[in-house]
Design a protein around this nucleic acid. Sequence first.
DNA 1: AATGAATGAGCCTTCATTCAT
DNA 2: GATGAATGAAGGCTCATTCAT
Lengths: 224, 224, 224, 224
Amino acid sequence: MGRMRRAVDHPAATRQQLLAAGAVVFAARGYREATVRDICREADSNVAAVNYHFGGKDGLYAEVLAEGQRQMHVLPPAKVVSADPGERLEFFVRGFLERVLAGAPESNHAQLMFREMIEPTRALDRVVAEFIRPAADELGGIVRELLGPGFSERERQLAGLSIVSQILNYKHCRPVIERLFPDLPLDAAQVGPLTRHITDFSLAALRGMRAVRAGSRRSKARKN
Amino acid sequence: MGRMRRAVDHPAATRQQLLAAGAVVFAARGYREATVRDICREADSNVAAVNYHFGGKDGLYAEVLAEGQRQMHVLPPAKVVSADPGERLEFFVRGFLERVLAGAPESNHAQLMFREMIEPTRALDRVVAEFIRPAADELGGIVRELLGPGFSERERQLAGLSIVSQILNYKHCRPVIERLFPDLPLDAAQVGPLTRHITDFSLAALRGMRAVRAGSRRSKARKN
Amino acid sequence: MGRMRRAVDHPAATRQQLLAAGAVVFAARGYREATVRDICREADSNVAAVNYHFGGKDGLYAEVLAEGQRQMHVLPPAKVVSADPGERLEFFVRGFLERVLAGAPESNHAQLMFREMIEPTRALDRVVAEFIRPAADELGGIVRELLGPGFSERERQLAGLSIVSQILNYKHCRPVIERLFPDLPLDAAQVGPLTRHITDFSLAALRGMRAVRAGSRRSKARKN
Amino acid sequence: MGRMRRAVDHPAATRQQLLAAGAVVFAARGYREATVRDICREADSNVAAVNYHFGGKDGLYAEVLAEGQRQMHVLPPAKVVSADPGERLEFFVRGFLERVLAGAPESNHAQLMFREMIEPTRALDRVVAEFIRPAADELGGIVRELLGPGFSERERQLAGLSIVSQILNYKHCRPVIERLFPDLPLDAAQVGPLTRHITDFSLAALRGMRAVRAGSRRSKARKN
DNA sequence: AATGAATGAGCCTTCATTCAT
DNA sequence: GATGAATGAAGGCTCATTCAT
C-alpha cells in the first residue's frame, strides 16, 4: 500500500539514520563536497529532513562530530595498562593505528576527525579540546617517563609529535604509500607489524636522546 | 583606448598568467574549493579563458601541476653533498622542511603536491612517479647506509616512512599543532630547530635499530 | 512532568492562542510574510495546530479578520455624539487617528484592516462591507450636513475621500513621513495636534466649497 | 537553427529585458513576492541571468528603482509653469494624479515607488532623497505662497501632507475605493475631475486657514 | 586569440502542508 | 484533541561550461 518506506519506523528513527548517513558521507567526501541531498538519499529520507532535525548542514555536521566524540570515549584509549612506559607506548600506538587502518564502517567518526586535522572547520577547536589534547597529554606523560629528567617541555613536545606523526602518516599519506609500496597493504593485518616498527623506532630514538643528554651532562660535570 | 589591461600583453601572456594564478588559488584552497572565476580574476582575465586555453578546470590543474614538477626539478633536492650519511640526512630533512614551512609564494607548487598526497586527484600518479619516488629513493639510499646490512627492504621502507612522516606532519597537521602548542610558531624560523630535532630523533632511532640487530646477530652467533 | 506548558490548558485554549498570535504576526508582517511556524511559536503550540484548527493559513487569516471585525463592532466608532456636524467631524477624525497612530497591542486588528486596504486578499470584500462602508456612510452624513444642499452624491463622495485620506496617509506613508520630517513623531501624542489640523483643514475646505457653490448660484440667480 | 531565441540579440539585450521584466514583476507583486524565476521567464532568459547581470535579486531591484528615478527625471515634474501659485498647485496635482491613475506599462516604476512608501525596503532612503523630497520641497514652496506669512514650518508641512494624501489615496486605497464606489472608475479619464476636486478642496482649505489666521491677528491687533 | 554573455545543473534552505500516532 | 515527524515544491544563488562574436 502506498509507496515503499524504510523498515524501521519508530519515532526519531530518521534522526539516527541521518546521523549515520552524515558520518558516512562526510567521512567519504568532507564537509564541503558532501551534499545534503546525498546524505538524505543515503538515509532514505527527505531533503528537508536535515534542516528539520539539525537546523541545516552545519548543525548535522556538528552533531555527527559530537556523536563521534561520544563513541570515541566509550572505548578507553590507553589509560594505565602497565607500569612499564614502553608497554604503554606500544599500547598507545596500537590503539591509534587500529583506528587509522580500520576499514570498518564504525571508523567513520575517526575518519572525520582525521579530516578535521587537515581541512579544519569551525568544529576543530572542539575536536582538539575534547579529543586530541587528552590523547596528546597521555602521550606526553609516556614520553616524559621514557626521556627522564633534563629535557625541556618543548623537547618533549617535539618528541611526541615525532611519534604521533609516524602513525598519522598512514592515514594522511595513504594514497601515496599505496602507490609507492604496492606490496604494503594498509589494512588491519598491518596493525601488528606497524605497531612493532613504530614502537621500536620511537623507543630507540628516545633512548638515544636520553643517552646523548646524559653523556653531555657527564662531560659537562667532568669539565667542571 | 578601451579598458586598462595588464602590463604584459604579448600573445600567450594570458596563458602564463592563468598558470600562475592557478598555482596560487589551487594551493590556497584545493582543487574543488578553487573556482574558475577566482582564478581568472586573479589572472586579470576572462571567465572563459581557462576553458579556452586549457579545455577546462581539469586541464588547468593538470598543467599547473606539471609546471610545478618542472620547476621542482630545476633545483635538485639533496644529491650528493657529503660522504657522511648523517649529514646527508640532515640536508634532506632541512630541504624538505623548508618547503613545508615556507610561506614564500614560489612554494605554491610544493603546497599543491602536499595537497595531492591528502586529497589525491587523477594527477597523483604522475606526482608520485616524477616527484615523490625520486625523493623516496634518495632517502632510501641514506637509510640503507645508516642502517647497514641485515635489514630487509620492507624494514628500510618503514624506517624511511618514519623519517619523512615527521616532516610532513608539520604540513598536514598544522592546524592542530597550532592549537595544541600555540607557542610553537610554524614558520621559516623553525626550520633550524625542527631539522635538528628530526635528524637527531631519526639518527638515534636508526642507530638503535642497528644496535639491536647487531646484538641479536651476535647472540645468534654465540649460540651457534 | 514533561515540558513546560502555557498556563491555560483547557480545551480550545490553543485555538484562542492561535487567533491572538495570528493577529500579532499578520499585523506585523502581512499575510505572505507571516509564517505558520512563527505564529505557532508565538502561540506556544505545534506547527500542525494551524492546519488542525483552521484548515490552513488561509483559514486562520480569515478567522483572525472576522474576530477583528467582531471586536471593532464592540466599540461604536463615533455615532451621534453632538448636534454640531463640526464637532462630529472632529470626533470622527480623532477616533480614526487614534487607531492609526496607536501602538497598543489591541490595535492589531485595526492594523490588519489597514493592510487589507493596501494589499487586499479575498477577505477585503467582507472588510469593506462590514467595517469600512458603515464608517464611510457615517462620514458621508457629516459631509452632507456640512456642505448643505446643491452638491451631487459624487461631490460628497470625493469630499469624504479627501478627508479620510488625510488620516490614512499617516498610516500608509508612515515610513516616508518619518524620513521626510524626522521631527514629527508619529505616536499617540500627535493625535491631538493632527486631529486639529485635519479638522480645521477639512472644515475650511468644505466651507469654501459651500461658499463657492452659493456664490455661483447667486450669480446665476442674478443673471436670471 | 537550434532552439528559439528572442528576436533582439544585440549585446546586453538581456540586461534591458531583465530591467523591464523586473519593473513589471516587482511592481505587480512587490519585492518579496516577486521571484527571480518569474522575472527571468518574463525576460525570456535564464535563471542565472539576474545573478550574472545584477549580482542577485537585491541588485536587480536597486537597479530597476534607479532606472525608474532616471525615467522620472526625464519628464520635468512641475517646475515654474506659472506665476500663479493656484495654477502651479493644479499642475502639481494633475501631474501626480496622472502617475497614480495611469494604467500604462511605463508606469511600473511609479508603482514601484508607491510600493516603497508602503512596504519599504533598504532602497526607500534613496527614493526619499532623490524623488520624494524634491517633490515635497516643490509642494512646500507652493503652499508657502498660498498661505502667506504667519505660519510655522510645521503648519506648512501638515498642509502639504493634507494635499498630497488626497492624491496618494487613489493609489493606496484603490481596492477599497473601487468596492465602495463602483461607479467611480479609477482610470486616466478621471484625472481631470479628480484634479479639479483636489485642487479646489485644497485651495479652499488653504484660503480658509489664511483667513482664520489673518482674523485672529486683526483681533489681536484691535485688542492692543 | 580572446571575450562578454548566457546556460542549466546543482546547492542549501524555507515553507505550508500532511502523516501517523 | 493534539502533536512531533516528515514531505515536496519552490526560492535564491553558485558554478563550470558553452555560445556568438
